[in-house]
């Protein structure tokens, strides 16, 4: 999965149009990125990349870019 493809899927999980979020979009700016949204993101990462985020890793994700960076640093993206 490329970074752009991941971005589209993240937007889908958070139920926002892809063109309304970017790497700099903060968690606070996405109402659906609440506790339930975090669980959905954890499930998405596990399903697609086989990695279960720890609670600290999940809480450290404060922007969309943080999610992509997490995946990139673990060489989970194409």
């Amino acid at each position: 999965m490329t970074e752009d493809e991941a971005l589209i899927q993240i937007a889908d999980i958070l139920q926002v149009p892809p063109d309304e979020i970017s790497r700099s979009t903060a968690r606070d700016a996405v109402p659906s990125w609440d506790s339930l949204g975090t669980l959905l993101l954890i499930a998405w990462v596990d399903t697609n990349f086989g990695v279960v985020l720890t609670v600290d890793e999940a809480h450290a994700l404060q922007t969309i870019g943080d999610i992509l960076r997490f995946l990139r640093e673990r060489k989970l993206l194409d």
Binding site: S35, L36, T38, L39, I42, A43, D46, V52, L53, T54, V55, A58, H59
Partner: peptide, 12 residues
């Protein structure tokens, strides 16, 4: 309940 922690615990 810290739902994130519990979810991560269960999946692990």
């Amino acid at each position: 309940m810290n739902g994130t922690a519990i979810f991560s615990f269960a999946l692990t």
